[in-house]
Amino acid sequence: MIVCVAVVGHQNNPLYLQSFTEADDALKLHHVVHCSLDVIDERVNNPKRNAPALNETFLGLLYPTENYKVYGYLTNTKVKFIMVTTDLDVKDADARNFFRKFHAAYVDAVSNPFHVPGKKIASRSFGARVSTIVKSFGSGTTA
């Protein structure tokens, strides 16, 4: 189950962060997402390690922490997507698929002429779409 998704901007500032848990651990998820930026920095700024995957947007598992696993994705405009899940076994393909759909939703949201780049995403339809994508995660559907 995905417990949190986040969009992080160029200044490592959160543009969108939504948690999907009943429990009151939103703050903890903020911490988890924030700390994962260190791993993204490490992976992105280490060209030696990243050489074979120049155009790879999917960053993979960033780190496991407590009972969460954090996955990352970096768009070609250097906007970071972060997903936190509690699933023990996440298939790479599932994670990639999720990010692909999430990226599409993000692109649609920022293509809104009323959206100012670099500002938080407050669109409700984006939120609704993200919820749908999150719910469909891991169910095997490729809708």
């Binding site: 791993v39 490490e42 992976r43 030696k48 390690r49 990243n50 074979p52 995957a53 999917f58 960053l59 993979g60 598992l61 960033l62 780190y63 496991p64 996955y71 990352g72 790479d92």
Partner: peptide, 12 residues
């Protein structure tokens, strides 16, 4: 070197 992916399930 591709941590966290199918090639290498561990992270840094």
């Amino acid at each position: 070197p591709r941590f966290g992916t199918a090639d290498n399930a561990l992270t840094e």
